[in-house]
Design a protein around this nucleic acid. Sequence first.
DNA 1: ATCTACTTAATTAACGTTAATTAAAACAGG
DNA 2: CCTGTTTTAATTAACGTTAATTAAGTAGAT
Lengths: 195, 195
Amino acid sequence: MDMTRTKLKEAALRLFGQKGYDGTALSEIAKEVGVKTPAIYAFFESKEDLFMSVFEESMSVYNEYIQAMAETSKGMSTEKKLHALLVRQYDFHRNKRELAVFAFRYLLFPPDFLLDRMQEAFGRFDTMLSDIIREIMQEGLERGELAVVPIENLVDSYLTLMDGLSIQYYYYQSPELFERKLKHAFEMFWRSVSA
Amino acid sequence: MDMTRTKLKEAALRLFGQKGYDGTALSEIAKEVGVKTPAIYAFFESKEDLFMSVFEESMSVYNEYIQAMAETSKGMSTEKKLHALLVRQYDFHRNKRELAVFAFRYLLFPPDFLLDRMQEAFGRFDTMLSDIIREIMQEGLERGELAVVPIENLVDSYLTLMDGLSIQYYYYQSPELFERKLKHAFEMFWRSVSA
DNA sequence: ATCTACTTAATTAACGTTAATTAAAACAGG
DNA sequence: CCTGTTTTAATTAACGTTAATTAAGTAGAT
């Protein structure tokens, strides 16, 4: 039950992510689901409402994914942890590509009606992620696995690494190419921070 | 002379960059210039033509900017060169913000009719930039200013650094914050590659 | 018989575009 | 240096399409 509602959201996620909010007509979404346009209004108040519904859900998934990062890395060496986070990010882009594309697009280019909410959401994610990384670095320093360098340097450069990889992942869709980039970038990063 | 044409392109650059192709109505562009919508057709065949005109010009400026990178760095130490390139990228985003936003948006999310041309343009830039970086790294290795590490590692990790910074530059518009990020990220990067 | 999940049909608004027109500037010949 | 002609830059009005939205109706499950 509620099959159609779910399918509408899936199609919307894909199309909004691929062609943008203004570039996607409700008729296309309906067509993908095999239903006429007005049927959408049985489930959503408006186009904006459908979009927001997709948006909220994708932010919530994205949120869980970041939370899970903190868990993943329990009980490993600092190097393994830092590497595991990048691999997780990679898996996210691989396995939830549509969601990743959607999130990436609207994190960078939100439509006007989303701007405030988006900035707030982005700020939250950024803080969460920074905190997770900072904690890992803190522990790494205490354990003597990291070079003695101001912790903010460690955090900032790691976050920059993640951002850089996420752009490249978006572009170079070939797994081989990306895996090479990931390997190279991490090896060099680790050279810079290891004790 | 041709004042209006120029102003139309400026307004289009800003609005297309800010709100996207489908999200920008010709009427908005006209309004910014203080002219009625059909006046646009005195200079451009269609909305797509106006967009392409803006696009071609911005790609050409972007091209010059990358070319100039190769020059900028002549006769410096490898460290200075690599740092200078990042600062140049930063200046570009600062001084040509509208152009940078436009280019960033359509490099990542081109409208359908641009996809092929965009991919080709992107490929060219990517190759140009890689070549420039590779050359710098090559020379750095020969001069013994760089750690003995496979050159592709050096290139890939530097490109990842640039990408990461360009995302952050897009977000964190505060210069102080960004300059800090740049400083931290470069310091760490240099630790990893210096001899 | 009513509720749910739709459909068909209609409405409204916006947008890209074209046509007709005008005012002014640029230009050519006597 | 004027005068008639053409070009350029713009306007107003209108067209055709498409998109979002709403209203009214229908077929099947409960």
